[in-house]
């Protein structure tokens, strides 16, 4: 009972603040609303028993990505700030309506297909539910994840490390000053 109440509370906070995020004109406020959305999403991951993912979400997204966004937003010059705040425009403009129609169509399609899909779930979900092979709240997720990263998923792990290094070098290369050319 209290579990589903908390789930609906987190889901409501996430969806409502995301709606406010796309509606609000001030970009700085929108970026701070992204904080709330990401925290609520981390709370939702806990309900799928993914505690390590939730902590990683808070560490990387809230601690890294969002600080990066806010830094880039606030450390850039004043013209960029002025440019940013005047971009949203009227609500009833043509791109807004096109986007709204497209998004509502897409949302209704997705929700309809999910609801009809949930009548006949795939075999492996029903099997793992019947055999009790789901992840349980008493499991030690972090230990198992560490083993999986070093044994079964070691190739994607290495690929993603090389990719991260490429990204670091690329971002540093792109954002350097070009004045000494």
């Amino acid at each position: 009972m209290i579990e589903s109440f908390l789930f609906y509370a987190f889901a409501g906070v996430a969806i409502l603040s995301a709606l406010l995020l796309v509606h609000i004109r001030n970009t700085a406020r929108a970026l701070f609303l992204l904080f709330v959305v990401l925290f609520a999403m981390a709370g939702l991951y806990l309900f799928a028993l993914a505690d390590f993912i939730a902590i990683t979400q808070i560490l990387i997204y809230v601690g890294g990505v969002l600080i990066l966004l806010i830094f880039a937003f606030m450390l850039s010059n004043k013209e960029l700030l002025a440019d940013l705040q005047s971009t949203s425009g009227r609500f009833i403009s043509l791109p807004n309506w096109q986007a709204l129609v497209l998004v509502i169509a897409f949302l209704s399609l997705m929700v309809y297909s999910y609801l009809s899909w949930s009548q006949q779930m795939p075999q492996w979900i029903a099997q793992s539910e019947a055999k009790g092979k789901m992840i349980l709240p008493t499991d030690n997720n972090i230990k198992v994840l560490g083993f999986k990263f070093m044994t079964q998923y070691v190739l994607p792990f290495e690929i993603i490390s090389v990719f991260l290094m490429m990204t670091l070098i690329g971002a540093a290369h792109l954002s350097r000053k070009e004045s000494n050319k």
Partner: peptide
């Protein structure tokens, strides 16, 4: 599972709206 799927569909569509309608790269 359906609860999670519906919530993620809503978040996805809000993100899609931001991509389509916003005139600001950030």
């Amino acid at each position: 599972l359906t609860h999670f799927l519906v919530v993620s569909a809503c978040i996805f569509c809000i993100g899609l709206y931001a991509v389509l309608a916003k005139r600001n790269a950030i």
